[in-house]
């Protein structure tokens, strides 16, 4: 066996082990990156759906001919919608303050506040 060949003996296994170690470290970092990406994407989806739900409910209340005052909570798929409608005394029952809150897992994702007016 020549001197050169003897010097290269066992090199590949050391190289592979070292590369695997580097790969494992990088894989951990990348997997946490991917996990964060997934969480952010999910949060964006929940935020968008919560905004759409709050807007839909608020428009329904504004368009309805009757109004029910008080606090009402109900579930809509995985979200919880809380509606609070209060008459504004100063405007003789013509104006109602509406607050819609949409939450998911106890976290409030959207709050829309507005008025409903009833003059006719």
């Amino acid at each position: 066996m020549s001197m050169k060949t003897r010097l290269n003996l066992g090199f590949t296994i050391i190289e592979i082990i070292f590369s695997l170690a580097v790969f494992a470290i990088l894989f951990t970092a990348v997997s946490s990156l991917m996990l964060t990406t997934l969480k952010v994407s999910q949060s964006a989806k929940y935020q968008y759906q919560a905004t759409a739900l709050a807007q839909k409910r608020f428009e329904e209340i504004k368009a309805s001919k009757t109004v029910e005052t008080g606090l009402k909570s109900y579930d809509c798929n995985e979200y919880k919608i809380s509606e609070e409608i209060q008459a504004v005394e100063e405007y003789n029952g013509r104006v109602y303050k509406v607050i819609i809150k949409v939450s998911r897992n106890e976290e409030i994702l959207e709050i829309i506040e507005g008025l409903k007016i009833m003059v006719q």
């Binding site: 580097v22 790969f23 990088l26 970092a29 990348v30 990156l33 991917m34 964060t36 990406t37 952010v40 994407s41 949060s43 964006a44 935020q47 968008y48 905004t51």
Partner: peptide
């Protein structure tokens, strides 16, 4: 690894941008 990290970072920044838009 550098290719995967670059792709992952691009994905994460796209997701964060999407979240900010929402």
């Amino acid at each position: 690894s550098s290719v995967v990290i670059a792709a992952g970072t691009a994905l994460l920044s796209t997701s964060i941008m999407n979240y900010k838009m929402k």
